[in-house]
Amino acid sequence: MSKPWTKTRKRAISSLITLGFLVVVLLVMNVLIQLGLVNAGVVDMLKFIGINIIAAVSLNMVSGMMGQLVLGHAGFMLVGAYAAAMFTNAVGWPLTASLTPALIIGGLLAAIIGFLIGIPALRLRGDYLAIITLGFGEIIRVIANSLTITNGAKGYYGFPTFSTRQDPATLFNFIFVIAAFVVFFSYTFGTSRHGRAVIAIREDEIAAESSGIRTTYYKLLTFTLSAFFAGVAGGLLAHQLGIIDPSNYGFSKSVEILMMVVLGGMGSITGSVVSASVLTFLPEVLRGFANYRMLIYSVLLICVMLFRPKGLFGRAELRVIKPYEWLRDRHRAKKAQKTGGGGS
């Protein structure tokens, strides 16, 4: 009977360590930013990493956990970007107050669009779903490009933003907390009854339906959730850049995010986090080799796919409990050695 107890305890310790770790990182980062020890460029990079983590982890719910190939994720980001930017622009409150409702509105609008697209799209599987979501993503972009309220191809701008020079910390904090929440959400979702149903759909749709899983319902639910978080990521990106250019939210952006999911390992949340970080960081580092940048990038991708076809992490997760256990065991071993030594 002791087994389930230790399991719960292990989980509790694990969550506490994770939470503590995140709080410490957030505090340290804020102190460093306030002291001016990290420059604006680095903070910007961290913000982009955070936004890409949100986008990748949300796509991982559909493509990794549920196994449905989606190529229109950037379209949902674009919807969220417009909705959030138009909201902060319209209400004219200080951005610290208006950003949260703006992101929720952006997410909700993206979720509604996702839901509507999902109804016909999720009847299809594999390549067909990929193509139809690709089509819808492009439709969203083209519409945005031609409407007047979005200011067309010139891009939508003039909405409030945080100045990177004067206030680099606030938006960073928003992105950090939201990214942590999305990771938390997708992990606990994945380990609830809903997550089991979703993973079962990936594993074998026919068997899942025969086991009583309402596959259409769960597909639509996950797709909508994923669109919601993509919308939030879009809203954050808009307020980071200060301009929404529809051409930045096209097919190549969708592929970029899908790449992060695939590279990290389909279904692995921490895999998505790590590869979103690396793939945001890498192009910047390679900027020095301007001409060869995309070449090096592609070669790296090919290498990963050749040597780790299931992605860096496969379906495994990084767990903070591991180093904790390692430290604890080492500590115990030392203690045992000491007492053993004293006895002899």
Partner: peptide, 20 residues
């Protein structure tokens, strides 16, 4: 047609979804 990348117990729990 098992859910191969799920644990044995999760295979069973998945089929109990309707009872939750």
């Amino acid at each position: 047609r098992l859910f191969k990348d799920m644990s044995v117990i999760d295979n069973v729990k998945t089929a109990m979804n309707n009872q939750l």
